[in-house]
């Protein structure tokens, strides 16, 4: 609304509405990020605290050590495959729910795990995968020796897919609900056979939801440390575990900050590519 107001009045209104929130975001989001950037350029003090001299040595160390590159590679790899598995499970499910007579109930069944505490969802898989767990009870029932399923990469995959599946299904469902099905008829009418018609007329309509869902799974899956910590314990180290370790027992905040900046740079790169194709409305789909 462009209403008549003196510059002073307008300034007062902006300060009253935007002021407190903007102040908060600058103090608790922007400044901390800058601190991480500064600390990542510092060195490790005798007690682990960051101290001068400043330099790029943490980054040099990160990118010259195959161990760290392997961690980055593994994080991306596990994140990517988990996300693809989530899509494989979630994409058809969203269509099934949207076309079901009981869609409200089914949606509720997706929402319940979505709102169930994150740690409980991870913990549940320990109960399934542990030595005396559900899966081994099943295996031994066939007379086979119990398997060592924990810690394992398999368990990390399963729990990651499990944890983030609802994050994908809900935005995709929103996209499927808005599908203009008359386009499918138009494609048939113009001679496209069923599979072709789906990919020409329906799939593109789900693409924005699919991309948003992809990021909603991929970003936290790459950044997680809890899942790998509890289910991959020691065996599977992701970049999140590396950061936690530097701020915990390894006591090297400067190096941990550098690792954080690397993770953040990867996320921002992905987001930048996404925003370029989807625009700001695409960013809103991530909420």
């Amino acid at each position: 609304m462009r209403e008549a107001a003196t510059p002073a009045q307008r300034l007062r209104r902006v300060l009253l509405t935007v002021g407190p929130g903007a102040f908060w975001l600058v103090l608790f989001v922007l400044i901390p990020t800058l601190i991480v950037l500064v600390v990542s350029l510092m060195s490790r003090g005798s007690l682990g605290q960051p101290v001068p001299p400043f330099g790029l040595h943490n980054y040099v160390r990160f990118f010259s050590d195959p161990l760290f590159l392997e961690i980055i590679g593994r994080s991306l790899w596990i994140g990517l495959w988990s996300t693809l598995l989530v899509i494989l499970l979630g994409y058809p499910l969203a269509f099934y729910i949207a076309q079901s007579r009981y869609k409200e109930v089914l949606l509720l069944l997706v929402v319940i795990p979505f709102f169930t505490n994150f740690l409980i969802r991870v913990y549940a898989w320990i109960v399934v995968f542990q030595k005396e767990g559900l899966l081994n009870a099943f295996i031994t029932a066939f007379g086979l020796p119990p398997a060592e399923l924990l810690p394992s990469t398999l368990a990390v995959y399963v729990a990651t897919v499990y944890t983030y599946l609802p994050f994908f299904v809900l935005p995709l469902y929103a996209a499927v609900e808005r599908i203009d099905w008359s386009l499918l008829e138009a494609a048939y009418d113009l001679g496209a056979r069923p599979v072709r018609a789906f990919f020409e007329a329906i799939f593109p309509q789900t693409l924005p939801g699919l991309l948003a869902g992809f990021l909603l799974v991929f970003i936290p899956a790459v950044g997680t440390f809890v899942i790998a910590d509890l289910l991959g314990g020691g065996k599977v180290t992701l970049v999140g575990n590396l950061i936690q370790l530097q701020f915990g027992s390894a006591q090297n905040w400067a190096f941990g900050s550098a690792a954080s900046m690397v993770l953040m740079a990867m996320v921002l790169l992905g987001l930048w590519l996404y925003a370029r194709t989807q625009g700001e409305r695409g960013l809103d789909r991530l909420v």
Partner: peptide, 12 residues
């Protein structure tokens, strides 16, 4: 072939 009421043009 059909001309649809909503036209059903492919938006992409």
């Amino acid at each position: 072939n059909t001309v649809f009421q909503s036209y059903a043009l492919f938006p992409h």
